[in-house]
């Protein structure tokens, strides 16, 4: 499997973050939730690797791993 990357990996991180915010600009909270849901599915499909996806789901809960 591909190890889930949890160290900095996005070049020009500030630019990416600004693009993420601007994609949500002008959307209601409900519309933003929908966009986020679509984004999660698109990214998950791009990753594909089931173990990496499971690791990402665990990481997102912010619970400490044993």
């Amino acid at each position: 499997m591909t190890q889930l990357i949890l160290t900095p990996n996005i070049p020009a991180a500030d630019d990416f973050y600004a693009e993420l915010l601007s994609t949500h600009e002008g959307l209601s909270t409900e519309e933003s939730h929908k966009l986020n849901a679509r984004l999660v599915l698109i990214l998950a499909n791009h990753i594909g690797d089931r173990e990496a996806l499971s690791a990402a789901l665990r990481a997102a809960t912010l619970k400490k791993e044993d």
Binding site: K34, A37, I42
Partner: peptide
Amino acid sequence: DISRILRDAVLDLSETYEFARPL
């Protein structure tokens, strides 16, 4: 609510992108 949002996201994506159809 969140399972409906995810479900609808799959359906919306499936119209344009083939990857969502198996979901």
